[in-house]
């Protein structure tokens, strides 16, 4: 049943597979992002409440969604590496962590820049913003742990365990922060209800979201390749690949 997956457990096959995948991902991401961002900046209507500042939405929400899905993907990769001993899975987990951290940082920054004109402050201890901040800490922990080991095989496994512990904790943290937030409702916070999205706003959002998602895929492919060659640097195929100067 799983036979079709077996070739990809071979580092050489998956290295070349990632290499073939990455131009397609990169190009389609560039295309979608160009169209999506121009649409979002120039043609999408302004929100009737928030005016032009609503355009931040088109990067804030995709990166917030991606920051969480990347963590989930990382945890799934870590689980398959620990449970089914798929060696390459923890390489992909390690490849994903810095990407996730960057998108979490983008979600936080754009959230702050959106919050300043809307709420009057850069930072509000809002449940979503706070859990996003904690998510950033979890990512940084995984990255720091991964960097602390010299042996990358070990580093991948250790970071994988931490990612799994984090993913079990994430719902608890999210729930506790939400609960804490309703308890300490700040006086200045006037949360704007999620607006029912008009289709002129919906399509540029979808384009931006998939553009960013494909970008994540492309970057992950390159990082995955880097992880594979550093882990297999004694193998003949890596040596031939590196000395043959062809990318």
């Amino acid at each position: 049943m799983w036979k079709w997956l077996h070739p990809y457990a071979n580092p050489e096959v998956s290295y070349h597979f990632a290499g073939k995948l990455k131009p397609w991902l990169g190009l389609s991401s560039a295309l979608l992002l160009t169209v999506g961002l121009i649409w979002a900046l120039l043609f999408a209507p302004a929100d009737y409440q928030q005016g032009e500042s609503f355009r931040i939405f088109y990067i804030h929400v995709p990166s917030a969604i991606l920051s969480m899905s990347i963590y989930l993907a990382m945890a799934i990769a870590a689980l398959s590496s620990l449970v089914w001993q798929v060696r390459l899975a923890d390489a992909s987990a390690a490849a994903l962590a810095p990407i996730g951290a960057v998108f979490t940082a983008i979600a936080l920054l754009t959230g702050a820049a959106w919050g300043k004109p809307m709420w009057g402050t850069w930072w509000v201890w809002d449940a979503r913003l706070t859990s996003e901040l904690i998510l950033l800490f979890l990512y940084l922990g995984v990255i720091a742990l991964h960097n602390a080991f010299d042996d990358k095989q070990m580093a991948g496994k250790a970071a994988g365990i931490l990612a799994l512990v984090g993913v079990i904790n994430l719902p608890i943290i999210k729930y506790s922060v939400e609960w804490w937030n309703t308890l300490h409702q700040g006086p200045t916070v006037s949360k704007l209800g999620a607006p029912a999205m008009a289709s002129e706003m919906y399509w540029p959002f979808v384009l931006c979201f998939f553009g960013f998602a494909l970008l994540v895929g492309a970057v992950a492919c390159v990082r995955f390749q880097t992880e594979i060659i550093t882990r297999n640097k004694m193998r003949p195929w890596v040596r031939n690949l590196v000395t043959s100067e062809v990318n």
Binding site: I56, I59, H60, L109, W114
Partner: peptide, 8 residues
């Protein structure tokens, strides 16, 4: 705010 978000 908008250009800060996009730029950053």
């Amino acid at each position: 705010y908008v250009w800060l978000s996009f730029g950053a």
